[in-house]
Simulated assay, not measured.
Amino acid sequence: MADPQKRPAPRPQKPAGSSARPAAAGKAVSPRPPAGEVGAPATPQYESLIPRSTGLRALLAPVGGFGVTLSNMFRKTVTEQYPRETVPTKPRYHGRHQLNRYADGLEKCIGCELCAWACPADAIYVEAGDNTPDEQYSPGERYGRVYQINYLRCIFCGLCIEACPTRALTMTNEYELAGPTRAGMIYEKDDLLAPLRSGMLAAPHPMVEGTTDTEYYRGQVTTATDAQRAWVREQRPDDPTLPEGAGLEAANVPGPTAALMAEHVAGARRQGGAR
């Protein structure tokens, strides 16, 4: 048994400058020259492209950053009396989303799910479906069968509308969103679809005869045709978007979630004394 107090003999140290590999028999190896000290890298002197201030301008430069603060101290304070008074938002304000339609009424969403992938808050859920001759909801092969946006997660960043390849998803100026439950803050496809306008037919219906999805993407389809109206008249005689139908007011019924949210927003505004 080895003595625990006995330490192993130290290994002999190699002389400085010796090679790590042993020299071959009969071959002379010259020692490696000692390395010199590493000096600091030479850095070029920085020269600013902005001319240096002089005189009075250089004297007032430290307080120049307070110019915006000082200029606003003497302006009149404007307080918006919301909800009694509603002030229009800026034109590019990011509000509630909207799923757009083509000029003949077909939906622009193709169910590609790029908006869901681009969403940093995981607020969008999309399921695609296949278009068939009897159920043609959008030009091409697929459409958004299920489309949900959870407004408890949405941060209104707008990355989803940047990712949409067909400009199907845009953002409106509507900002009054309120709901009594968590489920009431999840918008479905019926709540997000844009309202039907004059010349449109409610989907599903065939594409304009003699066209492909390319003509739709290029904006060459401007209105519904007689052949499309005849197909809708045969499949859905009581469709309100037909010329003899009940009209667009009857067709543009908001979805259940959007209708309930609008009711709660209206109640909150009445409670706040809105005019």
Results as ranks from 00 to 15, higher is better:
M1F: 02
M1D: 05
D3S: 14
D3N: 02
A9Q: 12
P12K: 05
Q13D: 11
K14F: 04
P15G: 01
S19C: 12
R21F: 03
A25D: 05
P33F: 01
A35T: 13
V38Q: 08
Q45C: 08
Y46M: 02
I50G: 04
S53L: 04
G55D: 15
A58Y: 06
G67A: 15
L70A: 12
L70C: 04
M73L: 14
F74W: 07
V78R: 10
V78T: 13
V87I: 14
Y93W: 11
G95D: 02
K108F: 09
C112A: 14
E113K: 08
A121Q: 13
D122L: 12
Y125W: 12
E127D: 13
A128H: 10
D130S: 11
T132K: 12
E135C: 10
E135R: 13
Q136N: 12
Y137S: 05
E141H: 14
R142P: 01
R142E: 15
Y143V: 02
Y143C: 04
R145V: 06
V146I: 14
Y147C: 00
I149T: 01
C154V: 07
I155V: 15
G158R: 10
E162D: 10
P165R: 07
T170W: 08
M171V: 03
E174N: 12
Y175A: 03
P180T: 09
A183K: 01
Y187M: 03
E188D: 13
D191M: 03
A194E: 15
G199D: 06
M200R: 10
P206L: 11
M207G: 01
R218V: 09
V221T: 05
R229E: 11
A230S: 15
A230F: 08
W231C: 01
R233M: 11
E234N: 13
P237F: 14
P240H: 06
L242A: 09
A251L: 02
N252M: 00
A258Y: 01
A262N: 02
A262G: 03
A268F: 14
R269E: 08
Q271F: 15
